[in-house]
Design a protein around this nucleic acid. Structure first.
Length: 576
RNA sequence: GGCCCUGUAGCUCAGUGGAUAGAGCACUAGCCUCCGGAGCUAGGUGUCGUACGUUCGAAUCGUACCAGGGUCACCA
């Protein structure tokens, strides 16, 4: 809690006896800034004190308040409103921001704790598509938020590199690889080897429909892969390598990186152990020829082994949870996976709970809404098979091209840096539009909206940052000569300082709730407040003292916006 | 049908049980002698899906219902 609020809560506790009521959780913000900066509603106290709220409010307001930073304490009906002294408040907030510098907003609540965040997790032999954007960016931003809160974080990519479909791919490779241009020696040097794999996959799927025999060939190839057959293994490894190389290019553009890339294949030899345990404890039961673990009444059992004895991805998720716990002893483990898998995770977590795993309650499915594609005017859930897949790279390219056009029009003399700026603005627009709404909401993939640069958008935030930089540059006053803020008494300045004051709690809440939009909304708020202020007041004026104090505010705003943008994987620019 | 999620302005969405529910987009009218107009200001709309309940107080919590979406065993 912020210092002012804590001190006020303590003082109230001296004036009236709160019993076991936690006063600090009761504060709110007055609906109108002219009423005050902090409000204390007396309803809860009325219950314990058996006294009317307005009377309590009066008693509190009339008591002695001797904090130098407090200008006014007034009772307003059942509320007590506190008005900070503008000069003192400004000085205190700015001093905290300047002292912390780029570290402002960070905390140590997570110190000594580890959080594992599984996100992105694309399938190899395919391209990253727009629908991967959500898991990828939400996950990376959660990682950034948690790190800002002092947690040690493991950013984990649970690569989809295993399954019977690779049997199909290997069968296709053997059958018509050469004829499709997949000459062995050329794979690594090909422009787009992943596209070749895609073609093979599509082709064998359509051929399987007319020739069911081929299905058996594919299964045979997968068995070879499982058994460690050198040819199968080598080809699979190459598919994995070229796919990863391709992913990394996109990840780099998005500011995404991983500490660990552990594919599903990794858990192949780790499943028997947990299956044995399930069998020994009697949880594993036979059902319709398959082996399952029953769960509570309202959710269906988790399928552990198919009729043919092979495992499923649920089995792999059990093994991966065991592995992660053993290796990291996490205090939280997040699965950044779409909401369509809600049942699956409830089943997996449920099985671990039935096994008595202490860590089961630390697993969180931080789900997000699906991305819908517009097909003939209808918003539908994207399907890879129908070929309407939109490549993530293409979206980023479109965004960058459009950004380049706009930047060039608005600011033609940026020289060589135009390419970098266009990339930052374009990608920023796409990323931010995905971070803006609560993660649980479904999003319609509307390219026009993704590429919008006006209103509540990424470029708007970047533009605001550019303004900060422009002012600081133009003033030619060194930051060591900035004022302490005690001259900042305008209402708009108070609003901005209250905004700055909130930053650390915003980060903390966003990390706790694994909800990037809390930060996005906050930054929009900050930028909006600033732009209104900027239109109304001059920062650099003839009044040298006032100028120096206002520059101090601008510098603090720049620090916070820059840090917030970085956490959201947007680049804070100096010019655009 | 069971379970999960979502219903707030024409559209997209904010809204930690507290005072008169807010932004952006779209539409209209303004604002560059002056820190970057990707901006700002002013215009107006709401049975907060419906009903009942809990509470001093409900968009927020509970129950039921309505509507939309997701999901329900041998894919991941």
């Amino acid at each position: 809690m912020r210092p002012y609020q804590r001190q006020i809560a303590e003082r109230i506790a001296e004036i009236v006896d709160p019993g076991d009521l936690d006063l600090s959780s009761l504060f709110s913000v007055p609906p109108d800034s002219t009423l005050g900066d902090l409000a204390f509603p007396c309803f809860q106290l009325a219950r314990t004190l058996k006294e009317a709220p307005p009377r309590i409010a009066e008693r509190i307001a009339e008591a002695a308040w001797e904090f130098p930073w407090l200008a006014e304490v007034v009772a307003a009906g059942p509320y007590v409103n506190f008005l900070y002294d503008s000069g003192a408040f400004s000085r205190d907030v700015l001093a905290r921001v300047i002292a912390a510098g780029e570290a402002f907003g960070t905390s140590d609540v997570g110190e000594g704790k580890t959080v594992v965040v599984e996100f992105s997790s694309p399938n190899i032999a395919k391209h990253l598509a727009v629908h991967h954007l959500r898991s990828t960016m939400l996950g990376q931003v959660m990682v950034n938020l948690l790190r800002a809160s002092g947690y040690s974080v493991v950013a984990l990519n649970h690569l989809g590199d295993w399954g019977t479909n690779f049997g199909k791919l290997l069968a296709a490779w053997e059958r018509y690889g050469e004829e499709e241009g997949l000459e062995d020696s050329l794979i690594e040097t090909s422009d787009d080897p992943v596209a070749l794999f895609n073609k093979l996959y599509v082709r064998i799927n359509s051929e399987i429909e007319t020739d069911p025999q081929l299905e058996e060939t594919a299964r045979a190839w997968f068995r070879k892969l499982e058994a460690g057959d050198p040819v199968a293994r080598e080809r699979w490894q190459r598919i994995r390598d070229v796919s990863w190389a391709r992913f990394e290019k996109v990840y780099k553009r998005l500011g995404v990186s991983f500490d660990e890339v552990i594919g599903e294949s990794f858990y192949e030899d780790k499943m028997p152990e947990i299956i044995d345990e399930l069998a020994k404890t009697g949880l594993l039961v036979e059902s319709e020829g398959a082996e399952v673990v029953a769960l509570e009444e309202e959710i269906p059992p988790l399928l552990i082994r198919k009729r043919d004895g092979s495992t499923l991805y649920g089995t792999r998720d059990l093994a991966s949870a065991e592995y992660r716990w053993g290796r990291w002893q996490f205090s939280r483990a997040l699965y950044v996976v779409d909401a369509g898998q809600g049942l699956h995770f409830r089943q997996v977590f449920g099985v671990l709970r039935r096994l008595g795993r202490s860590y089961a309650d630390r697993l969180e499915h931080t789900e997000f809404g699906i991305m819908r594609m517009n097909v003939d005017g209808q918003w539908i859930k994207g399907r890879t098979r129908k070929g309407q897949i939109v490549l993530l790279e293409d979206v980023l390219d479109d965004a960058t091209a459009l950004a380049r056009e706009v930047v060039l029009r608005k600011n033609p003399d940026l020289g060589d840096s135009i390419e970098e700026i266009a990339e930052a603005v374009g990608v920023g627009a796409v990323v931010f539009s995905d971070m803006k709404a609560r993660r649980g909401r479904d999003v319609n993939f509307d390219l026009e909206k993704f590429l919008s640069f006006e209103g509540e958008t990424g470029p708007y935030l970047q533009y605001t940052h550019v303004r900060f930089c422009g002012i600081l540059r133009k003033s030619e006053i060194d930051s060591s000569d900035h004022g302490d803020g005690s001259l900042l008494v305008e209402a708009e300045e108070k609003a901005l300082l209250l905004c700055l004051d909130r930053f650390d709690t915003v980060i903390a809440r966003a990390a706790l709730e694994a909800e990037p939009s809390i930060l996005s909304q906050y930054l929009l708020d900050l930028a909006g407040e600033f732009n209104a202020y900027y239109a109304k007041h001059r920062i650099i004026s003839d009044d040298g003292d006032l100028t120096r104090h206002r520059l101090s505010l601008i510098d603090a705003l720049r620090v916070v916006l820059s840090r917030g943008l970085r956490i959201l994987c947007l680049e804070p620019l100096e010019r655009m």
